[in-house]
């Protein structure tokens, strides 16, 4: 069993220390992936909370057939789409103020903002695939398994995402 598998096995025994370690290890990835789908920080925050609670309650279901990261991101994806459905039905709570968070001031804000603006023009499914490839560094097979789509569809979504980004950034 891999280190991540052992960590999830400990979480399955309701080991709080292991869960805190797992949270520290995956919270960034879950939040940023949720944000790539939802584009709203307060919703991504809710997805992070719900996903981690689902992991706490359901770690015993992890069978090690995929990486822990893709298993957890799969849960986050379900949570994000569940929120999208609730939003569509008007069942959502009002947005809370998350503006207290600040960006790293040493960063090149101009480039970041240009990329962020270009990302806003992508459709959610193109943005999601680009995030999984460029940020999470997942293989085509891993993304296909996680999203339940053929590898060719992953490739074509990435192709369209790159084309759209290139158009926006030039």
């Amino acid at each position: 069993m891999t280190g991540e598998g052992r960590l999830l096995a400990l979480v399955a025994t309701q080991d709080r220390g292991a869960f805190h370690l797992l949270y520290d290890q995956y919270a960034n990835a879950v939040y940023r992936y949720a944000l790539s789908i939802l584009r709203k920080p307060h919703l991504a925050e809710e997805v992070l909370q719900e996903t981690m609670m689902a992991v706490w309650k359901g770690a015993r279901h992890f069978k090690g057939r995929s990486k822990a990261l893709t298993w957890i991101l799969g849960i986050a994806r379900n949570q994000a789409h569940s929120l999208i459905r609730k939003e569509a039905k008007g069942q959502r709570l009002p947005e809370t103020d998350s503006s207290a968070e600040t960006r790293d001031p040493t960063r090149n804000l101009h480039v970041d903002l240009c990329v962020q603006e270009a990302l806003e023009t992508l459709s959610p499914m193109h943005r999601e695939v680009m995030h999984l490839v460029f940020y999470e560094n997942l293989s085509m097979r891993e993304i296909a398994d996680m999203l339940g789509i053929p590898e060719g569809t992953v490739k074509s979504r990435m192709h369209h995402a790159r084309q759209a980004m290139a158009k926006e950034l030039t």
Binding site: A27, L35, E101, V111, D112, R162
Partner: peptide, 21 residues
């Protein structure tokens, strides 16, 4: 270049780790 810029832009996003915990 796009991969690098993308990663930088995502990294610049603040994550409310402690608040959610």
């Amino acid at each position: 270049q796009l991969r690098h810029q993308f990663a930088l832009a995502v990294d610049a996003t603040p994550v409310p780790i402690d608040r959610v915990w």
